[in-house]
């Protein structure tokens, strides 16, 4: 790893339950991201994905460990890290423009009203909401609300964007359009993005790196999968790429079986050196790596060669 723009170093989160018992959601979690990278975290509910994101955002503090962003350990929230919430979290008593302006005027306190408004308008236009500036959130559809959430996050020109399942409450069509928008904006602005998702296809389309987490409690980051698809991939022809199914099957295999059995099968897993997986073409992978399961191998098995990056 040359450029560690974000480095999560050995964080843990524990909750004390009744009677002095502590529940460990995860511990000794190490994770790093380069500048301009788009990362997706996939894992089952309860593995602590949202907690990791909240710690990154500064909304939650780790029980142990530290998070370093751009060379500095974070303490609390920051305008450098914008959050797009799952439930969009718009202030319902403010208009679209009011919601975005609130963020803008929070970042640049000394700006006058006209400057704030003009800046907010730029980002409203960017997400394609021109003409709806004076509507209130209750008058908007779910997709439009999330667009406002994106505009609000982008308007403060953050160093990175944190997204907690931002599109999970949207219908498939709207989700697709918004994924396109987010990808376009992130590519154009070189934004570093960290996103939690349940949607494997969403991760494949958007992410440069996909972090796979095992089931909680006691969840660990099992592997980092590098997305082999070309950077100029499109949503419509994504599934035609020869590596698409290998990647998809690898992730689904992980979610279906390996996320449960990972800890038992990999006792020597080193959380500081999580294997970086390059998914290759099935013809080229070495079969000995895979579990001998002929029926699955006959179809696209999604075999992979874990290799530790150095």
């Amino acid at each position: 790893m040359t450029d560690k723009f974000i480095s999560i170093e050995g964080i843990a989160k524990r909750y004390s339950g009744a009677g002095g018992a502590t529940t460990t959601v995860f511990e000794n979690l190490w994770l790093s991201m380069a500048r301009g990278e788009f990362a997706c975290v996939i894992g089952h509910s309860g593995c602590g994905k949202t907690t990791v994101l909240n710690i990154l955002a500064g909304l939650d503090a780790p029980s142990e460990g530290a998070v370093i962003v751009d060379g500095q350990a974070i303490s609390g929230t920051s305008l450098d890290r914008a959050v797009i919430f799952q439930s969009h979290a718009l202030l319902p008593w403010r208009t679209v423009l009011g919601n975005v302006s609130y963020a803008v005027s929070s970042k640049w306190r000394s700006w006058d009203r006209a400057k704030v408004k003009a800046h907010a308008q730029t980002f409203i236009d960017l997400v394609g909401l021109t003409g709806s500036e004076h509507k209130r959130p209750s008058e908007l559809s779910g997709g439009m609300k999330q667009r406002v959430g994106i505009a609000r996050a982008l308007s403060i020109t953050p160093k990175m964007m944190l997204m907690d399942e931002p599109f999970s409450a949207l219908d498939a069509l709207t989700r697709g359009t918004l994924q396109d928008e987010v990808r376009r904006i992130c590519l154009e602005t070189g934004q570093t993005a960290f996103m939690i998702t349940h949607d494997v296809d969403e991760a494949i389309y958007l992410a440069d790196k996909i972090f796979l987490m095992t089931n909680g409690p006691g969840a660990v980051l099992a592997e980092v999968v590098e997305n082999p698809l070309p950077r100029d991939r499109g949503r419509t022809d994504l599934h035609r790429h020869p590596l698409y199914y290998a990647l998809r099957n690898h992730i689904i295999d992980f979610l279906v079986t390996r996320s449960k059995t990972f800890a038992a099968e990999t006792p020597d897993h080193d959380p500081r050196n999580v294997p970086l997986v390059h998914v290759g073409k099935p013809e080229l992978t070495i079969a000995s790596d895979a579990k001998p399961e002929p029926s699955r191998e006959a179809s696209w098995p999604g075999l992979s060669r874990p290799s530790t990056s150095s």
Partner: peptide, 27 residues
């Protein structure tokens, strides 16, 4: 007051007094 609205203010580094007047009071 909904936690997410307070979180919005927190991520925007809005101070306690401004948060009280711009988020909690209207909510």
């Amino acid at each position: 007051v909904r936690k997410e609205w307070v979180n919005v203010a927190r991520t925007l580094e809005v101070g306690t007094v401004r948060r009280a007047f711009t988020v909690i009071l209207p909510a």
